[in-house]
């Protein structure tokens, strides 16, 4: 009787999200961030067709050349085109960044909201589980996963997501615990709304501010985590690449061939800027208390 009709109400456009979109459209910086992100994603998607070279195509005569008309961003020590490798690397990095963060977000928000809202013993047990996972050394956890399931990209998403959601859950739980005591939640309760609807409609939307900020911080850190894992041989393997891996190799040859570090670095920073601008814009847009213009 209830949750369906409540959803149709949201569709009728009096919702927070619609207002947020109207406000976001007026925020130039956030729109720029959004545009840049869409551009990066499009390039990554289309890489197989638009990349100037193949990602494993070597030209040993052209090893480690600086940027030129032929190779816009130069070549690496094996003579592979850097632009191509950054484009291919972006596919992996963005995918890992977004999917692992989405996993962390989904688990963390729901887990934290339930723990914080129900409280008491349920909360204690749920949070001790989080503590245990926190205490588990990350490396051992990942290596165990690799040993049991073997090496594959999906597992990488899962492993990173499984770690990143912990902090998210804690942040959301803290927020929810203070929200739970607010009178509007009690009012919803006295209207007879079910717990799940209260969590979904009254609690979670009010935790969005910190969650969005934390999310925009998580995406780049996940990208670097992937690089770290790949570096250890647990993530993706050369000749495949990712921004994190390229940066790692770039650091080794920083003094001789600085462009090997600079260009992947720029790609990662651009993404980070775009995410932060978009994140700030979203946070403001989703808070009705910031003025409408």
């Amino acid at each position: 009787m209830d949750s369906n009709s409540l959803d149709t109400m949201a569709e009728k456009g009096t919702s927070l999200w619609e207002d947020a979109w109207i406000k976001l459209r007026k925020n130039r910086l956030a729109l720029m961030g959004l545009g840049l992100l869409i551009f990066l994603c499009l390039v990554s998607l289309l890489t197989p067709w638009i990349a100037p070279y193949g990602y494993e195509e070597q030209d040993l005569l052209m090893g480690a050349t600086p940027p030129s008309a032929e190779h816009w961003l130069g070549t690496d020590v094996f003579g592979r085109d850097m632009l191509t490798r950054i484009m291919w690397g972006g596919r992996v990095s963005l995918m890992v960044g977004f999917i692992a963060t989405a996993v962390a977000l989904a688990i963390g928000v729901i887990y934290g909201a339930v723990a914080g809202y129900v409280g008491g013993r349920v909360d204690a047990v749920m949070m001790r589980l989080v503590d245990i996972l926190y205490a588990l050394p990350f490396m051992i956890f990942i290596i165990l996963l690799m040993v049991v399931f073997g090496r594959n990209l999906l597992l990488l998403f899962f492993a990173i997501g499984a770690v990143e959601w912990l902090t998210m859950a804690r942040i959301v739980r803290g927020q929810v615990m203070s929200l739970r005591k607010q009178e509007f939640v009690e009012a919803a309760h006295s209207l007879g709304l079910s717990q799940w609807i209260i969590i979904r409609r009254h609690i979670i939307p009010n935790t969005l501010g910190p969650v969005i900020v934390y999310t925009t911080l998580t995406i780049p850190s996940v990208m670097l985590l992937e690089a770290f894992l790949s570096f250890l041989g647990l993530g993706i393997q050369p000749p495949q690449s990712s921004w994190g891996l390229l940066i790692n190799y770039g650091v080794e040859t920083m003094e001789e061939y600085p462009w090997l570090l600079i260009f992947p670095g720029i790609a990662l920073s651009l993404t980070l800027f775009a995410l932060n601008f978009l994140g700030d814009g979203l946070r403001d847009a989703l808070d009705p208390r910031t003025s409408k213009d």
Binding site: S5, M9, F184, L191, I197, P288, R289
Partner: peptide, 17 residues
């Protein structure tokens, strides 16, 4: 009052539920 719900939503919620 839930700061992220419009008056319309606040008033419609109990009616629909």
């Amino acid at each position: 009052l839930n700061p992220r719900m419009t008056v319309y939503e606040t008033l419609a919620e109990p009616l629909l539920y």
